[in-house]
């Protein structure tokens, strides 16, 4: 016998919500899903009327659903937002080129303007070439650092008031676990914040899908027949995050509410006064937000341009030694050339 929808609307249920274990019909699920995101936006005051908001769009399920729902809620509840899709082309053949096609389709379907920025034009390097230099280990460090800054650069160019990203509840819970495992207290403090940045010279980032389960995002995209790109990146996925992800999935199997419980825990963590807090400043080289001088993106870029791709990986002292050694070798070579020219 078919199970009836929990809301007593009279329709048959088609799914069991992973978040609440309630059986719902398609229509009631859509209504609940959209209402929850609206609730998140309103209660956390993520936007104000008349703002220009960049939606970070990769073409994946999260950003596709985010763009669709933001457009829908903006029209339904009259948020008065001006939405723009902002995509970053990392230059990964067979992955990003295909996913950008999906973003372009979303642009046409949702009638939201799209801006694409590429690593090539911003940094003079594509991820394909970076992987050629660094290999398959640590390549995610380059991609992550550059993408973060590229979004800031794009947002500055577009003069938007905030950037909405598609981080979902699973991503945030996973990050809490990973930061505990890595002992990264600086990130542990801020990873559960629904709004980050937003100080002087920085554009705030907001996470409207913070309380939305990944499974429900997939269900929503599936039932709404949204077009999204679902292939994994062709370069190796971040191994350490993979452990945290597998652990979270195991926990979720035992108790589905564990995702929200972990986020709740992460929000409640208090650190001793003796624990150092990183001071956010502006990179002297590129002028973008950073807690170190120069910023990580500038060090990584310097390493690539010097032919020392590992310059920004690992300890700073190791990087300094590499830089010094290369400078010495260059000076020697220059002196040798001078001697040769004299003859």
């Amino acid at each position: 016998m078919p199970i009836k929808c929990k809301t007593e609307c009279g329709r048959n249920a088609v799914l069991k919500r992973p978040k609440t274990s309630d059986a719902l019909c398609k229509e009631c699920f859509f209504a609940a899903f959209e209402a929850e995101i609206h609730y998140t936006i309103i209660t956390n005051k993520l936007f104000t009327k008349g703002e220009k908001v960049a939606v970070a769009a990769s073409g994946g399920k999260d950003s596709t659903v985010l763009a669709y729902v933001l457009k829908l809620l903006n029209d339904r509840h009259d948020y008065g937002l001006q939405l723009i899709l902002l995509s970053i082309d990392e230059g990964i053949t067979g992955y990003r080129d295909d996913s950008l096609e999906t973003v372009k389709k979303n642009r046409d379907d949702y009638q939201i303007p799209l801006k694409i920025l590429s690593y090539d034009e911003l940094y003079g390097w594509t991820m394909d070439r970076i992987v050629g230099q660094i290999g398959r280990s640590n390549n995610c460090t380059f991609c992550g650092v550059f993408r973060r800054q590229a979004l800031d650069r794009g947002a500055k160019q577009l003069e938007v008031d905030s950037i909405a990203t598609g981080h979902n509840a699973d991503d945030i819970a996973e990050t809490v676990l990973m930061n505990i495992l890595r002992g990264d207290t600086a990130r542990l403090r801020r990873c559960t914040d629904i709004r980050t940045g937003g100080g002087e010279n920085t554009i705030p980032r907001v996470k409207p899908l913070k309380y939305t389960y990944e499974k429900e995002i997939v269900m929503y995209a599936h039932f709404k027949k949204l077009v999204y790109f679902s292939t994994e990146c062709v370069f190796a996925p971040n191994a350490y995050r993979g452990h945290a992800r597998a652990y979270l999935k195991d926990l979720e199997r035992v108790r589905p509410s564990v995702i929200m419980d972990i986020i709740h825990s992460g929000e409640q963590l208090l650190f001793k006064d003796t624990v150092k807090k990183p001071v956010r400043g502006i990179c002297e080289r590129c002028g973008f937000v950073s807690s170190q001088q120069p910023c990580k993106a500038c060090i990584l870029l310097e390493g690539l341009n010097r032919g020392l791709p590992k310059l920004g990986i690992g300890k700073k002292s190791k990087g300094d030694r590499m830089r010094l050694k290369q400078d010495k070798e260059l000076a020697l070579r220059e002196r040798a050339n001078l001697v040769k020219n004299d003859f």
Partner: peptide, 10 residues
């Protein structure tokens, strides 16, 4: 809020 919206019609 999730429990609230899962128990009633929109």
């Amino acid at each position: 809020y999730s429990r609230y919206v899962s128990e009633r019609m929109s």
